[in-house]
């Protein structure tokens, strides 16, 4: 099984998943598309959480990616799905480059609150902008792929599914490689004790900023994927409950495994959808009970179901993920 940890093998798994999409029923396909896009942004939060900081405002980059793609699509007619993901990632990344260096000076609750505040500033501005449809948002056209237009609903769904799974899969592979790199491991050291990291001659702020930009790139790409899946964008993309939902996915997944993020995201979508169908009046209660159960019985997240205990040993001084949010900076 060791061979599966090679990036090439992981790419194979991603490809396998794309092929699986040929046999999945249509509704599962669109649900998995949304789950893949959500797990991409949650993966960004996990990347950031490894430095001990949680962003409650990823909606900022999610909306930046979505609106960026939507406006370009509507004004220049650029509808290619792959190009749209790239544009989303660039929009999110550029904004991350501006905000990251500023915000990396803060830690813990101050960090979280600042990200939240910035995303709500964007939300407020978007609601006031009637040219962009205000709170109702606006629609964009169907995405294409390499010049192909998909009129058959099943093919269109499969195309979006493939793009989402491949984008998220590539991000997952990249994140795994990054987690094992010097910089990735240093992120864990920043979380454990950022002062000691500084004594090693490395800027802890710079590491936080790098992880922040990575999270922003993922969030922007995720915004583009969401936009393609729903063909509509509104300021809700930047609202704090949207950001909160992605933090939930990250908490559900835990920080130990990249695959756990995808599983957590899919589980959340399934529970939400079925509880809404069978218990339309109390679906929020079911969702809450599910989250509570995972937190109570799997405090290290869904990923702890299959990551072995010896793995924990390989990360000295790693505190529980719950502690990362409020851990004070020393």
């Amino acid at each position: 099984m060791k061979i599966l940890s090679h990036p090439a093998a992981m790419l194979g798994i991603v490809l396998g998943f794309v092929l699986l999409g040929r046999v999945l029923p249509a509704w599962t396909l669109s649900l998995a598309t949304v789950a893949a896009s959500n797990s991409l942004i949650a993966l960004g939060i996990v990347v950031l959480a490894r430095t001990g900081n949680v962003s409650f405002g990823q909606g900022l980059f999610y909306a930046a990616g979505g609106y960026g793609v939507a406006l370009i699509a509507n004004s220049w007619g650029l509808t290619d799905a792959v190009a749209q993901v790239m544009i989303g990632a660039v929009c999110g990344g550029l904004l991350g480059l501006v905000i990251g260096p500023l915000i990396s000076r803060y830690t813990g609750i101050f960090f979280g609150m600042l990200t939240l505040a910035l995303s709500m500033v964007l939300y407020g501005a978007l609601v006031k902008t009637t040219a962009l449809g205000g709170s109702d948002g606006f629609n964009v056209g169907r995405p294409t792929l390499f010049g192909n237009v998909f009129t058959d609903p099943r093919e269109a769904d499969f195309m979006l599914y493939s793009v989402s799974v491949i984008a998220t899969g590539l991000a997952g592979v990249a994140a795994t490689v990054y987690f094992r790199s010097e910089l990735g491991l240093m992120s864990l050291a920043v979380r454990a004790n950022n002062l000691r990291v500084e004594y090693l001659g490395i800027s802890a702020n710079r590491i936080v900023a790098i992880n922040f930009v990575i999270a922003a790139v993922f969030a922007g790409a995720s915004g583009a994927l969401s936009l393609m899946a729903q063909r509509h964008i509104d300021p809700q993309f930047a609202y704090w409950t949207t950001s909160g939902e992605f933090v939930f996915v990250a908490i559900l997944a835990g920080y130990q495994s990249v695959a756990a993020v995808f599983v957590a995201s899919l589980a959340l979508e399934l529970v939400r959808s079925f509880s809404n169908l069978y218990l339309p009046n109390t679906w929020q209660l079911v969702l809450g009970a599910f989250l509570l159960a995972v937190i109570l019985f799997l405090p290290l997240g869904i990923g702890s179901l299959w990551t072995s205990t010896k793995r924990k040993g390989s990360e000295p001084d790693a505190p529980a993920p719950g502690a990362t949010v409020t851990e004070p900076a020393e």
Partner: peptide, 13 residues
């Protein structure tokens, strides 16, 4: 190890 988890997770999924 990540890919191992990925593998099992995806089967379960």
């Amino acid at each position: 190890m990540h890919s191992l988890s990925a593998h099992r997770g995806r089967i379960a999924l």
